[in-house]
């Protein structure tokens, strides 16, 4: 059972989230490339998952009873790496190696190279299907673990997402909980201009998912939504977020989807995140 988030823990998680944002920006700046916008929008969800919701053993990353997390929007790798490092899956010094040759931290998540990464992703639309497979296996084996997935809003334009959505409901996978990082922007512009996904919650409801809409930067709402998963159906948490959240000049700016901050921009961002 996931415990409720008390005020004390919430304040601590807010500090973790700030630290996550600093790490994300530092590692991307150091690498000289990467995806800050969609990493920053997902910080609260990933923080809540790794520091409150999921049952994990960082010292035993393949513990069979662990909860699983699939970052289906693989380009947000920095948010996952920051969480894994701060949670103790590998030393935080590794973050400096992001995207470099021989680093354990690839440009997109790699389950073979990085402790704690459950599935290699990066080609959008594939992660949710693998999460369905993990959830099916957990049920077959009578294990109590849950599988969490984080989807991008642009990502759900991929047809495979809806194949997986159909299957998860068909198999009544109530051990599967997905988050949609609904920040409204994709590489080429606002989703509403490129390819609209609205009404998004209705779509998931129509596919048979227990669907709730929350503020994706509110830790309390995130934890309550995860606690509110129902029996007999998969859960979709549509999380309204701001791309680039936490850094004034990145917020809601499409140009920060896949660009590293300069040294000066990094310093300004870190000042905002103290």
């Amino acid at each position: 059972m996931i415990p409720p988030l008390d005020e004390d823990k919430r304040l601590r998680l807010e500090e973790v989230a700030r630290e996550m944002r600093r790490r994300i920006l530092e590692m991307i700046a150091e690498a000289g490339s990467g995806h800050p916008g969609g990493s920053l929008s997902a910080v609260e969800m990933v923080t809540a998952l790794y520091f409150h919701i999921m049952r994990l053993r960082p010292e035993d990353p393949l513990w069979p009873e662990r909860d699983r997390f699939v970052l289906s929007k693989g380009h947000a790798a920095p948010v996952l790496y920051a969480a894994l490092a701060l949670r103790g899956f590998f030393p935080p010094e590794e973050l400096r190696g992001l995207r470099r040759i021989d680093s354990i931290l690839q440009g997109h998540p790699d389950m073979k190279k990085t402790p704690g990464v459950e599935m290699s992703t990066g080609s959008l639309g594939q992660g949710l299907s693998t999460a369905v497979g993990m959830a099916l296996a957990g049920r077959m084996d009578g294990k109590g673990y849950r599988v969490y997935a984080l989807l991008g809003d642009g990502e759900i334009q991929e047809g495979q997402i809806w194949e997986a959505a159909m299957a998860a409901a068909h198999y009544r996978l109530d051990n599967l909980v997905a988050f949609l990082d609904f920040n409204g922007l994709q590489i080429d512009g606002p989703l509403e201009q490129v390819m609209s996904i609205t009404p998004v919650a209705d779509k998931w409801r129509a596919f048979g998912w227990h669907t709730v809409a929350i503020d994706g930067h509110d830790l309390q709402e995130i934890v309550e939504a995860a606690r509110g998963a129902v029996a007999g159906r998969p859960t979709m948490i549509v999380a309204r977020t701001v791309k680039g959240k936490g850094v004034s000049f990145m917020e809601d700016e499409v140009g920060w989807h896949g660009k590293a901050p300069s040294r000066e921009q990094l310093e300004q961002a870190l000042r905002e995140l103290t």
């Binding site: 459950e118 594939q126 299907s129 693998t130 369905v132 959830a135 296996a137 997986a164």
Partner: peptide, 14 residues
Amino acid sequence: QNMIGIAAGLATAG
């Protein structure tokens, strides 16, 4: 596509 993805997920669990 979903079939291959589900197969991958099942394989991660042995």
